[in-house]
Design a protein around this nucleic acid. Structure first.
Lengths: 345, 345
DNA sequence: CTGAAAGCGCTTACAG
DNA sequence: CTGAAAGCGCTTACAG
């Protein structure tokens, strides 16, 4: 009997009157067992409640079936959506995901990686934080495959899945300009992640190309409250903006609430707002946020495809995905614009 | 060298010029190793990038360090909050959580449990769905400890963590009555989970005690859209309700949006609404939802405490927690009530 | 198709 | 304190 008192292949073998090897074979797809033997084994296994010990199996086979998800602030809408999708898809691919939280610090990312190695996970998917380059060696020696989501830096042997954040930022700028915003603003958090920085960069670059210099508000964590505070700030200015790109939906909700509840402004008539992520709340009627869709399915597929490929030596590749805009009601349409202007006249 | 090509204790032992036992000991807290040996081992381990193989360790020790979280719809605000908290707390207790998704069906819950057994997890925490009684045997034989969150039924050998949903429902009823609601309503989903049913039951029982029979709307999944649809229904009635208890915050947001966007009603002046869960969105200014706090910390502590207890044979216990109300602005206050009434006069 | 044997990487008595 | 040996539960050549 096992250390934990679980039923083992030996128990089943004895009960079925066959060898342990036979038991192992009936639970190995494609192994050769006669129908009779298999039937005997299955019956005994069922009766005893046998379940193959994946810890032991992982010791022998090249794969443990475990995949580590390294993530910060899992409770965030976008993050939980991604983790849910990843976790489900991995599961249907026969893997099981383990969650390792990080606070994005180098130390905690390193601890997470070590944890993943400790459990001999087949791969680690890094959703938050960026492993220090010095860890490349550690990962490589221990055969840990890495997938990096929205990290800029290269990492030896890792696949990267990149979103075209910069282009999305540019699109946001063009959109605001097109619907006639004269004083666009950018609201972003102080947390300088690669994705947020790229969105901001794209937005600013596009505007400067058109010769307009936006109001820029940067502060705090990437949360609703930041949007609320920063929204309140920029909307109290004399040159109050009439359009704003928020690098994240959460921030956008805060800005919208500031506009409505604190300044009595109408969205989009007085203020157009664009977000990023397309979290479920964006479609709630209180917000109707026009935003960029995170290509969650694309990210998930890319991860799983790569994981199911044989460890292809060192073919570090990058998968590019793009974020399309989801039109809702928080950006003035051109027809609304003309109406509101004629009204003004 | 390992199957996966990872560095093993043998590699370290050779490099350090000691036995494999010595290596094992320096990584086992409390084991006796001389400072010199330990130093040699640590140096070699560091140089080689050694990480103890927890799969192998789990095979020998009584604990694998793995804990399974069995959950449905992880992307939901409340669920993701709980999973995040659980996952973090477990991690700081030295465990690592694996996520196993279920669709709540018997078959998928069984598959989840078998998965947990397969990885010899120290325990499985069931957040969604209810394992069939027939599985008790399977779990027991394989030494899988279970914690059931908000499940009514008993399950041999499992701890249960229960919330006083019924009492909360009663409190909601009393609250609505106290602020003068004359036509209270209940909005709930068709998904008959134990918790939701208990909240509804408590609400209805309390009202009937007071001789008032509420409007009841039941349909769909436990989502925002259900609240929106059901809210639209009840608010189009001739005897439109003036107070509503929604069994979940998500439903409450839908009801509030229906009231405001589709009927131009003011919350709380025309309609008081109470939710349940206290998800982050409840505090967003667009909602300001008065709701019941899920005692997430309490749930998490109860889980971890129990897990760190020695497997105490069969002391199946139940931990009771209560949900306190978080006051915000979606329920009319008594002073508002008198003002609005004097206005009516 | 089937079984005995070796091996995966660890830990834990058992001697010394 | 230290190491050789046995064992955890599996899988995988190797013979038959």
């Amino acid at each position: 009997m096992s250390v934990k008192g679980a039923v083992s292949a030996r128990d089943v073998a004895e009960a079925a009157g066959v060898s342990r090897t036979a038991v192992s074979r009936t639970f190995t797809p494609g192994a050769s067992v006669s129908p009779t033997t298999r039937a005997k084994v299955m019956a005994a296994a069922e009766a005893l409640g046998y379940q193959v010990n994946n810890l032991a199996r992982g010791l022998t086979r090249a794969e443990s079936g475990l995949v580590a998800l390294i993530v910060a602030e899992l409770e965030t809408p976008y993050r939980s959506l991604l983790v849910s999708a990843l976790t489900n898809r991995l599961q249907s691919a026969g893997k099981v995901a383990m969650i390792i939280n990080t606070d994005r610090s180098d130390a905690s990312v390193e601890a997470a990686l070590r944890q993943a190695i400790g459990y001999r996970t087949d791969a680690a998917i890094v959703l938050s934080g960026m492993p220090d380059r010095a860890l490349a060696d550690l990962c490589q020696r221990n055969g840990l495959r890495l997938v990096l989501i929205n990290r800029d830096e290269e990492f030896p042997g890792a696949v990267r899945i990149r979103l075209d954040d910069e282009e999305a930022g540019a699109t946001a700028a063009r959109t605001l300009l097109r619907v006639g915003c004269a004083r666009p603003a950018l609201v972003t958090s102080a947390s300088a992640t690669v994705s947020l920085a790229a969105r901001a960069r794209g937005f600013l670059a596009e505007l400067s190309k058109e010769g307009v210099s936006p109001i820029v508000a940067v502060d705090g964590p990437t949360h609703y409250k930041t949007g609320l505070a920063l929204g309140t700030d920029i909307l109290s200015r004399a040159d109050r903006p009439d359009g704003v790109f928020c690098v994240t939906d959460l921030i956008a909700f805060g800005v919208i609430d500031a506009a409505r509840q604190r300044f009595g402004l109408r969205v989009p008539v007085d203020l157009s707002v664009i977000g990023f992520d397309n979290v479920p709340q964006a479609s709630w009627e209180a917000y109707g946020l026009t935003t960029f869709r995170q290509p969650i399915d694309g990210i998930v597929e890319a991860c799983v495809n790569w994981l199911s490929q044989p460890s292809s030596g060192n073919t570090p590749e990058t998968v590019y995905l793009s974020a399309e805009i989801e039109w809702r009601t928080s950006v003035l349409s051109l027809s609304q614009r003309s109406q509101s202007q004629s009204r003004k006249i």
